[in-house]
Write a protein that binds this DNA or RNA. Structure first.
Lengths: 153, 153
DNA sequence: CTAAGTGCAAATAATTTGCAGGAAG
DNA sequence: CTTCCTGCAAATTATTTGCACTTAG
C-alpha cells in the first residue's frame, strides 16, 4: 500500500465506528485495511464481491492487496461482523452482519440484487426443523430469483 | 469414452424414463452421457457436485469427460429439468427439478446436506415481494445452516 | 519491541473455451 | 449425412498459501 488518507481524514458510515470500537475492545488490531473494508461494506446497498470492494477502496486511494482483503474478510466473518453469501454466482458476496435480518431478490438476467424482508419470519419454522433433523441451526439464507422490472422488457 | 453398458443393460431410477421421453418429445438428443447424468442425479438423496457425479458415473463404467458434464448440466438447467444450487461452498451442486419442492439444512462443520420441507410454504410471501420489488419471481432458495447431530458432539 | 497484519508471486480448484473427431436422428 | 455432442488440452477466474517485510499497540 502506498500513501493513503489517514484515519482522521476519512468520513465513516454510521456503522463503522461501532465496529471499530468493538474490535478495539476485543483486543483485535484496527488497521487501515480493516477500517476501509468495513466502511465500504457498511455503505453498500447490496452485498459486494471481492472485486467490487477492491475497486471501491481503490477509488478512495486505498490500494489493498486482494490477499489481504480475503484474509480480512475471513477475519470479520469469524468475528461475526460480516456475513458471506452465495447468490448462484461463482464468487461470494459480503455484507454487514450488524443489520436488520433480511433476504435478497436476485435478477437472473442482469444480477441486480435488492434486499427484502419477510412479513412472517422463519424462526418458528427453524425450531421445527431443528426438532425434525437434530441440527442446531445458526442461520438461514433465503433468496428469490427472477427478472427485475428492467429485464422483463 | 470407452466401451460402456448399452442403454438396455441399465436399470433406471423412476424419474429417468420420464425425463428421457420428455427430451425425445422436445426433439433434443438422448445421449449416453445425458442419460447417465440424469439417472445419477435422480437416484441421489442430496444435491451432487460435479466431482460427485463424475465419480458415480465412473463407478458404473461411464467415463464422461468433465467438460461434457458441465455442458450437459447447463443444458438440463436450461431445460428446467435440473436445478443448480449454491450451499456456501466453492462449487455448485445439482439436483432434479422434477421433485417435491424442498429446502436444505447444511452442516457448517462436515458439509452434510439434508432435505427439509416447510410446513407453510413461501408462495404468499413471494407474491408480496413481487408487488414490492416489481420483480417477476421464478423460484427461491432457502438453506438453513448449523451443526448436524454428529458435529454437535 | 514483537506478535499480528500485509504484499507479492506462485499454487490450487472450479469452471470455460476452441477445435477436431464422433455419434444421434 | 449433417447437425449436435463429446473429448482433450489449454485458458480463465476465484480463492489460497508461503514467505519476507511492515506496523499497531
Amino acid at each position: 500500500m502506498k500513501r493513503r488518507p489517514s484515519v482522521v481524514e476519512m468520513v465513516w458510515s454510521s456503522h463503522t465506528p461501532n465496529i471499530l470500537n468493538q474490535l478495539h475492545r476485543d483486543g483485535e488490531r484496527v488497521t487501515v485495511a480493516r477500517t476501509g473494508l468495513i466502511d465500504v461494506i457498511a455503505r453498500a446497498k447490496k452485498p459486494l464481491s471481492v472485486p467490487d470492494i477492491l475497486e471501491t477502496l481503490a477509488k478512495r486511494g486505498l490500494d489493498v492487496n486482494k490477499t489481504t482483503l480475503y484474509r480480512d474478510l475471513e477475519f470479520f466473518v469469524k468475528q461475526r461482523m460480516v456475513i458471506g453469501i452465495q447468490l448462484n454466482e461463482r464468487q461470494k458476496r459480503y455484507e454487514l452482519a450488524d443489520r436488520d435480518h433480511h433476504h435478497h431478490v436476485v435478477c437472473t438476467s442482469c444480477d441486480r440484487v435488492e434486499d427484502v424482508k419477510l412479513e412472517r419470519e422463519l424462526a418458528a419454522e427453524e425450531r421445527k426443523i431443528e426438532l425434525a433433523t437434530k441440527f442446531k441451526i445458526e442461520r438461514h439464507a433465503l433468496e428469490f430469483f427472477g427478472l427485475c422490472a428492467t429485464c422483463q422488457a
